[in-house]
Amino acid sequence: MKALICIGHVPDTTSKIKFTDNDTKFDTTDIKYIIGPYEELALTRLLDLRDAGNEMHITTVTVGLQDTEPTIRKALAMGADDAVRVNAEPLDDYYVAKQIAEVFKNGDYDFIVTGKESIDHNGSRLDGMIAEFLDLPSISGASKFDIDNGKIKAEQEIEGGTLVLDVSGKFVISAGKGFCPEPEPRIPNMRGIMTARKKPLQVTEPAEAEALTETVKYHLPEPKPACKMIDPENPEELVKLLHEEAKVI
């Protein structure tokens, strides 16, 4: 089986978010980048399935400039076999999805995995867009992903329940909660890091595509007024404030 997995290069979850250029650009000063948490879960799951004896070749794909390579190398150090980087600024989801669809067309992959949501611009659209470009089925926010005797098993969360899916042919799937049932973080060891340096990282130029959206300005949330402290001996006070002041009960 050949898997193509999208690896996003995103600010560490603890990053302090700031903007520059009159609040039109993300300020990258002092920002540490990581693999998107959902994508890391997804990759961990693929590696677990491979370790469990399922034959699988794992290729990562990232749309980004050269500064994304340390993140890509980390995915290789975790255990992915090789990587493709599309040498372009990820302009918007539509543009990125188009690039990934092209990479898929140019290989003989069986399926594409993405994370359910990117934590930077909080999109959750890549899976559906890629699938539509390729006219393939999409499974958004999969809560289960398994291989049983070479057959893929998947489940998808919908409101009020879970769909158990019969999967055949090529498809695009995005990893939600549950995709990787027991996520043991795969911290690359020295050997992993050394071999990752020698794994193939192919750089390709982007396909012709345009972005349909553009961020024109960022805003930080209004600073919150200080927390009102309530005497633990007097919980009636809290009830009163929630009713009269906050008007939420």
Partner: peptide, 8 residues
Amino acid sequence: AFADVLIK
């Protein structure tokens, strides 16, 4: 943060 996104 919040972003103002232009749809083109």
